[in-house]
Design a protein around this nucleic acid. Structure first.
Lengths: 181, 181
DNA sequence: TCTTCCATGTAAATGGTTACATGATTTG
DNA sequence: CAAATCATGTAACCATTTACATGGAAGA
């Protein structure tokens, strides 16, 4: 699974706490993974046991103490090994697509309402990604190495959101037309 | 979770065996869900216990016997209930995106090779979907109800594939340019 | 002869979600 | 005064994957 490796990438970019990782893997450009804090704490402990990451305990005043995690040499070796390994293409699983497909076995108007709600949600997410793009990556042609890879991941999020928005819009138009007859 | 409900949609369209469901939820238009046969058999048993589906045992000659599943009245009620319920927007988790993001912590050339492989794979999947679109849905403006919903799901698969292909192509160009310097 | 297709399943392990728990500080 | 933020965790449960198992028929 890739959660360990997504954490290794995030911590390679910048050391951080489990809490920060759970808040979103957001480091300039598309939160590229997500998981609950419970799972992240568990996985971080396992990774620390395996020697991929090391925790530095930091006492704070007025706030709970925290553990700042860093990738170790063994962690860097593991990440490089995993990066060279082939990934299998994944096929998205989308609840809303199942609902659209099955709309006529229930109330198509309720499905239409859901599509509209998701459309608004994704439009907002897209706007957020585009703002990051303008702010952080003004001149993409000049990018190289790590910054380029960050930018490309952000571009992936933007492309995905635009695709979803375009599709939901098509679905909305078609369902409205159909319910009008 | 939506696997039960994806199965209810698939079996509402046409009765079938666990084996057929595992082969792909493919019923004219985008395999809209996927799961291993092990999981499907388990879930089908649970659904049969809960009374959402009923199995008819069919003996065959020269082949193993099979169980053809049909949605029951209770299953139809449950599906309609679930369809009216809001879905939470899901955020895709893509291993290859993590690899692109982390490319500089390993060998970027290996990641580029993976991107090219995935590009070819998705181009092939897209061609398959487009062939179904031409063959089955020649006149989309005339579609209504269930056929329209099937078509819209297929359109979603096509949009997703085109988005991925566009993005992978952008990544390929950028990584090639960067490695040439 | 080897592989693939049909068709179903069990068992073990791993991955992920939900509920519960704590406690000070800051913001509305 | 209530809610959200910071920060970590345990326990129970549910979902998913991987490995193992069977066995005849058809095709390369």
């Amino acid at each position: 699974m890739a959660l360990e490796h997504a954490i290794l990438v995030a911590l390679s970019e910048r050391a951080g706490t489990g809490y920060e990782l759970a808040r979103g893997f957001d480091r300039d450009g598309g939160d590229f993974w997500q998981a609950t804090h419970q799972q992240i704490y568990r996985v971080l402990n396992r990774m620390a046991d395996g020697g991929w990451v090391a925790a530095e305990h930091v006492a704070q005043t007025g706030r709970p103490d925290k553990k700042v995690y860093t990738v170790t040499g063994a962690g860097r070796v593991e990440l490089a090994r995993w990066l060279a390994e082939p990934a299998q293409p994944t096929h998205p699983r989308d609840d809303l697509a199942v609902k659209i497909r099955g709309a006529s076995f229930g109330d198509p108007a309720a499905v239409l309402t859901e599509v509209e709600r998701h459309l608004a949600h994704h439009a907002e997410r897209l706007a957020g990604y585009e703002a990051v793009e303008r702010r952080e990556f003004a001149d993409p042609t000049a990018l190289t190495g790590h910054r380029l890879h960050q930018y490309l991941t952000l571009r992936g999020s933007i492309t995905t959101e635009r695709g979803l928005i375009g599709w939901y819009d098509e679905v909305r138009t078609a369902l409205r037309r159909d319910s009008a007859t």
